[in-house]
Write a protein that binds this DNA or RNA. Structure first.
Lengths: 154, 154
DNA sequence: AGATATAGTTAACCATACTTAAATAGAAGG
DNA sequence: CCTTCTATTTAAGTATGGTTAACTATATCT
């Protein structure tokens, strides 16, 4: 039986390691590409929420609409984003990733996984099985929580 | 038996969720405190490697020594870092967190855990047990890999 | 001791990403 | 239709963090 204190400790220890690697590897990779963190964040938002407008991004990134517009413009000029008028509301624009933008995002995600997959490679079959189960459990739990949060916000 | 493809898929799905939350919650929290990302990164580096000098930070953050010095100076002035002469080499300084700096770091880490612990709260005892085992396995594997990387760099 | 290398700081300068305020243009309501 | 609201853009100004280059002070090597 795992007690709660021990569980919390394992959780924190792992999170500390993982969060650090995730952050560090990502910022490092982004720097090599010549893009900035805000640019990367915006691309990730578009990646996660296909079909979003300037105001969506401004809200999610918690910056002014002006800032979002300017940032988006740079990414459009760099060929990573495409900006199109909304068909139903011609004031609104919606942003989508270009193939180049998609490739950039894929590469950054792969970069983030690289370390983790190396860690996973050295596991035994049994360990892998346990880790696999845990990932499925956590993914399910995280999604459930997201839903319950979403319904609370109604 | 978990096949490799399925394992990789679970891993990626979980990482995508976790990395996003970790990044997003952290940047969000930092913004509310009024500090910047580079400032936070520097504090985290000092937190992780007690007793580091300007050149260490400059190397790890991959910026010039001048940039590291300037950034450190702001954090000293803000009361988060302390800068002392090294006893053995009076050219070198070493930076340590002040109590205020330590509190700031603790709060940011707690913020990062908050979401995860909420996810964990809703697990059954069995699920918690599995996740606990997986965390221990992964932490051990990650530390082993760090060591083997370090020895390769000799 | 004297030359050279190393640790850090300072200054001048530049790019980026923010902000607010004003402008444009389309949507929606009376 | 005319007002008002909404979505976005543009412009002007500011702060931050980065750069290189020059400088100080200390350590190291011969």
């Amino acid at each position: 039986m795992t007690n709660l204190l021990q569980f919390s400790k394992s959780l924190r220890e792992w999170m500390e390691i993982f969060a650090h690697h995730s952050m560090h590897d990502t910022t490092r990779y982004i720097k090599t590409t010549g893009f900035s963190m805000p640019q990367f964040f915006m691309l990730m938002h578009v990646h996660r929420h296909e079909r979003c407008g300037i105001s969506d991004l401004s809200e999610r990134m918690e910056v002014s609409a002006a800032a979002a517009s300017q940032l988006a413009d740079k990414l459009v000029q760099a060929g990573l984003l495409e900006r199109n008028e909304d068909l139903h509301d011609r004031r609104a624009k919606h942003l989508t990733l270009t193939p180049k933008g998609q490739a950039f995002i894929n590469a950054s995600i792969a970069e983030r996984y690289r370390w983790m997959e190396q860690v996973a490679e050295n596991l035994s079959a049994d360990e892998r099985e346990t880790v696999n189960q845990a990932m499925v459990i956590l993914t399910k739990a995280a999604k459930q929580q997201e839903e319950s949060l979403a319904s609370n916000h109604e």
